[in-house]
Simulated scan of single mutants.
Amino acid sequence: MLDLARLRALHAVSVHGSVSAAAVALGYTPSAVSQAVTKLERETRTTLLERRGRGVALTDEGRHLAATARQLLALVEQAETELEERRGRPAGRLVVGAFASAARGLMPAVLARLGSDHPALDARLLEVDPHLSADLVSQGVIDLAVTHDWDIAPLAAPEGLERAVIGDDRCDVLVPEGHPLAGREVLDRTDLPHHRWICQPPGAVCHDWLVRTLRATGHEPDLAYQVAENHTHLALVAAGLGITLMPRLGRGPLPAGVRAVPLEPVPVRRLFALWRTGAARRPAITEAVRVLHEQWPLRTF
């Protein structure tokens, strides 16, 4: 009989594309994932992974078995959901995926509350890119995703997923003290051109919003510094190198020398929770969504 934990490891490699990424998703070491797949190869007397440069790729047999593993894991989830529903209380493992600023600004309070209220629930956190969240939920890698969208990129829940709005996260323009915009009480979009900008790299929704907004004023943006981490944005603003647009969630206290100026109309990103329709009755899911709603008004920016 095939070992379910080893099938789970193979499935994770197929979803994430590497042993190391699968290990992060599962909370294992890369060595443990490699050993699990090796043992599965011995059980099946089949080569499931093959070396490709510095990485690995699934063989045809590996892809076939990974697809079967996905079906088996879905059946296991269904059985676990039914058992948990019969118990009537959250229990078992719940893997929550959240984007970086939600993982920092919202999830600590949510996870602490779930842990204190439900000792039988093993809630875990995986930081994931918002663009990947829906696929990871669909594939069963995570149970619940905290993700977001903007008006220029609405989030559509794929077939088989359900969602609930958590709240709206407002954005401000952050400027160095002494900057020409620092003394303003409020800005509008015509104030944004002709400044050196610090922004997310191309492909990020924040980057796309800024480029579209500035071009709509008839100006090409001066994107002088393109970095992913918000704390790096803050450090660059504090050094007087440029200005940035930043959501409030997870931002934390502003460093000395940085001022937040509201922008009208306010750029807003909307946060959602996503989960599989088949798990909608699971008490762990319904309770996690309830706590997300409960904690959202209590967050501090």
Rank of each mutant, 00 (worst) to 15 (best):
L2S: 15
L10M: 01
S20A: 14
S20G: 11
Y28V: 05
Q35Y: 06
T38P: 10
E41K: 05
T44D: 09
L48H: 01
L49Y: 00
R51A: 01
R51E: 04
G53L: 00
A57K: 05
E61Q: 13
G62H: 00
L65T: 11
A66I: 10
A66C: 11
A67H: 05
Q71V: 15
L72H: 14
L75E: 14
E82N: 11
A100V: 15
A100F: 12
S101I: 13
G105D: 12
L106K: 02
A109D: 15
L111E: 01
A112F: 06
S116Q: 15
P119K: 00
A120F: 02
E127F: 02
A134K: 01
S138H: 08
D149P: 03
A153K: 09
R170F: 09
D172R: 08
V173T: 02
V175Y: 06
P176W: 00
H179L: 07
A182F: 03
L187I: 06
R189C: 07
R189F: 14
L192G: 05
P202T: 00
D208E: 14
W209G: 08
R212I: 12
A216V: 05
H219A: 14
Y225W: 15
T232L: 04
L234C: 01
A238Y: 00
L241D: 05
I243V: 15
L245R: 03
M246A: 13
P253C: 06
L254P: 10
P255G: 03
V258E: 07
V266R: 02
F272L: 12
W275A: 04
R276S: 10
R281W: 08
A284D: 04
L292Y: 06
L298N: 10
F301K: 14
